[in-house]
Structure formats: C-alpha cells, structure tokens
Design a protein around this nucleic acid. Sequence first.
DNA 1: TTGACATGCAACTAAATGGTTGCATATTAG
DNA 2: CTAATATGCAACCATTTAGTTGCATGTCAA
Lengths: 124, 124
Amino acid sequence: MKDDDAVFRALADASRRRLLDRLHARNGQTLSELCEGLEMTRQAVTKHLVILEEASLVATRREGREKLHFINPVPINAIAERWMNKFDHRRTQFLSDLKAALEADGAATTARPSLPPQPKRKPR
Amino acid sequence: MKDDDAVFRALADASRRRLLDRLHARNGQTLSELCEGLEMTRQAVTKHLVILEEASLVATRREGREKLHFINPVPINAIAERWMNKFDHRRTQFLSDLKAALEADGAATTARPSLPPQPKRKPR
DNA sequence: TTGACATGCAACTAAATGGTTGCATATTAG
DNA sequence: CTAATATGCAACCATTTAGTTGCATGTCAA
C-alpha cells in the first residue's frame, strides 16, 4: 500500500480535515463556498484542496466558471479498515502488553505524562 | 476531538508508520532494536518515537539501561472507527454523488488523472 | 461589450519538520 | 574499577509546508 502516504499526509493537516468536514456537511461545494468564513486566503484553500485531490480524497468537476468538490469516501475507508484490522486482531494482546508495561516497576512515561522532574540521583 | 491532531500528524510520516509496523511485528522492543537495519540515525528514530509517544500511540518503560516500547492500540482504533462511521453512513450517497460528478459533461480531474492537455478552446 | 465574479498561476516568506553530528550520562559486564 | 553499551540532550542544517500577495485568465450577466 504505497500511496497511503498521500492520504495520511493529506489528513495530517487540521485545515484539510476541516475542509473534508465541510464537504461532509454539504457535498459538491464550490471553491468560494468552501472559503466562506475561514480565516485563510482563497489561495491557501486552493492548495489544501489540491492536496486532497492528489490523495483522491476529493474529486472535482468544472461547472462553468466554478469548480465543484466532491468527497471520495473510498480511500479513507480503505485505510481506516486496514489499520483497524491490523490492530484489532491483536488488540487485546497489545492492551495487556501495555497494561503490564505500565504497571511494571519502572514508571511508564506515557501513563504519567506530567510528573515533576525526578531529582537527579547523585552521581557516583 | 481536539487531540486527534497529534495522532494524525504522527501517522503522517512513513518512517513512523514503519516503526509502528515493527512494534506490531514484535511489541516491547528497545530503541536500539528498533533502529536495526534502518538507514537513519538513532537520534532520528528517537525523535520519531517521541512523536509517537506524544500522540499516545506508543508507551515506554525504562528497563535498566534500555527503554522498551509498546503499542497503544486505543487512539488509532478510536480514530479509525470515528472516521469510518463518519463516512460510512453516507458512503453510498457520496459514491453516487461522485459517480454523477465524474460522469457529468465536464471531465473530472481525479477520475482521469493523466489526460493529454485539452486543446485550449479559441478565445472569444 | 463590459464589468463583476470564480478560479488559476507564480514568486516569495516564515515556520515546522526530518535529519545530522557531537557530546553527556547512566547502566551493566568483566 | 573500567570499558562497553544504551540512551539523552542540544545545536545545527536542508527541505518541506502553510500561508501570503499580485496578477492573469475564463465565464457569466446586464
């Protein structure tokens, strides 16, 4: 699955996810419609949409002087499904690994994220 | 869901996804183990792992002089599930929108990505 | 036809990102 | 103890990225 990359990268940006949300709310919007109310230039939005297109997350059609944008649900579902399956059949295993790891006598970082800095033990 | 962002960004990089794959293959590996065979410095790998940790995709435990890394399947499943649901209940709608859009008399870009450049219609 | 509207293109900038090198520190094996 | 091993930290660098501005082009309505 080599061109997952484009999809992952496309989804990495919050503005682009917001654009997808907008299309999710109403499919087939024009560029200007998608720009409305965003604190971003039209050009910025254009660039985001291009990236979404290149990841095949959005398809476009020219309608006279305006460009309509449509969600393509396929790649996102494909990835979500693949990654879910990937982690799901081992999910309980991973969870018990994790639990064991965190409970072990070593104080896992992620479980206690904001511990005060441990006083450095005096060097030998 | 505000801290999806960290997860999406963490998953955006192919090296990090590869690290997750490695952990998926064998959970609880040390830093040096995770470095083996990668054409990347240990420091680079460390940075990637930190990003994965900050996204809570990986948890770590210190074991003597080595650091063990464990997959946390929760956030990735959460996101996958949420995005799948989001697009799934409208999936057929989106697909028919898409089909209609692509079939419309306008030649959609995404569907026919490598068309030869259309001869420009002569200007008025 | 003309002007307003919708989009496209290019050059530029600032900041984030992925990576490196060099050195410091902690732990374990002899 | 000492040396080898495992990791941590900081400064630095190159590239990518997200955004801007300015201008060009295409299309519609009056």
